[in-house]
Write a protein that binds this DNA or RNA. Structure first.
Lengths: 141, 141, 141, 141
DNA sequence: GTGGTCTAGACCACT
DNA sequence: GTGGTCTAGACCACA
């Protein structure tokens, strides 16, 4: 489990941690129904106050992504978020746009951009097939 | 100029505003060298305190995306960030990955995802050709 | 920690505060890596709004002179600015010239001026040797 | 008459202009009793609103450095500011300290610093002897 | 009319 | 208790 945070970028730490855990789950590092590392474990790894990590877990629970069982630990939920197809696409479109905004600002030409996109998608497909890996070729963090 | 913010999502308002303005600039709503709407104008439109909008503008100035001229207004900078090709690709790859994470979590099938991506890229190309539009088919926000 | 400000001299308070803190750091009142007084503490001491002090601290952070850690405090950075020898000398020369301008305008004779300069340099040397003092013989402010 | 201003450094333009004019006067570009360039002339040269330049002249008049004669122009005052020797030294000491602060922060060694200082003082002496020059070796601006 | 500074004061994020 | 965000509102610097 790899968690990258940046204490200087203005976004609350607990949201960044939640985002990173989401990434790990999406990448298959922790499968549906499996247990997440403990709050203390994560706190120690990224040298952050345990309260902050606990808040990130609470955030994920609110989003229905994990379930906490008292005295046992935190587990990836088996339920799938219940939003409409349109809603789902809207969320993803917005994130894609963010990447394209930046690409345009950095004056990355269309063909190079297309190449990056297909390359990332391919990396994701492979990760899914091999049953999940922690990091990827993009050098996250 | 369309600015969508969500005062409940934990990310500071001023960062959201900065992000939205960045998007508008990337989409060509405001061309290089042109003037952005005034702080007060934006503040009124999205019913937010002018100080908060001013902070967003300052953030964009720090990022080198806009320039402010006292008593005159805020303008899109004509300078281009000077970073290496590798660096540029890394930044964009990371943003793409974030979108793909979310797509996977929402269990959007691969073909639908591919469709969304090509649809967004196409929207960007059109914006570039037509000289900039304000909104897009994704229904941002 | 002594901070002298003059709310009537036209220079924004937050810049004056930043300047004074810079002086204290240069004089060794707060060593590299050590913690600065809290925003609230300084605000109370000089009877200024905490937001104004916070802005001064943000200014120093932008200049790379201090680092802030949320929930912990603000600390003197241990990094050294990485500019060329020529650049460094240019910056200092300019500041020296400003002092000499004023000396000439006040018709301070050359020998008296030379005395003042060597006296200030000596005060700085002593501060360095004794490990930092708070005030100096010049009666700043 | 050379006037360097920086519209991004937070200090009001009119104070920067006043400071630069003071420098020119100190350097002997405009002698005691002589006429300064007109407000319009300066405004055009540095592309700043004439009102801003006028305010700088008003500031200098308040400080007793120039005199304005209606319909004629602005002249360097013949009077010498009437403050005590101690007061004068305090003002200059403070400016010297500012330069030394920066020198220390930039880790300029003591001997190099001493060399810069004596070099600047020498430049000033020469300017005084030759009857005044506009710029100096320090590359102001 | 445009952006900038400052205040007073509430509430949040984090240790 | 530390720094950060946000608001409401007064006043200043500048064109």
């Amino acid at each position: 489990m790899i968690i990258n945070i940046d204490s200087t970028d203005g976004i609350p730490l607990y949201l960044q941690i939640a985002q990173e855990l989401k990434h790990s789950i999406a990448m298959g590092s922790v499968l549906s129904g499996e247990q997440l590392p403990s709050v203390r474990e994560v706190a120690e790894q990224i040298t952050v106050n345990p309260n902050t990590v606990a808040k990130a877990y609470r955030e994920l629970e609110l989003q229905g992504i994990v379930e906490t069982r008292r005295g046992t630990g935190t587990f990836v939920a088996r339920t799938v978020p219940n939003i409409s197809k349109e809603e789902r696409e809207r969320v993803v479109s917005r994130l894609i746009d963010k990447a394209l905004d930046e690409a345009r600002r950095l004056q990355i030409p269309d063909d190079e951009l297309a190449h990056i996109v297909s390359e990332r998608i391919e990396a994701f497909r492979q990760a899914a097939e091999t049953g999940g890996v922690d990091s990827s070729a993009s050098g996250r963090g």
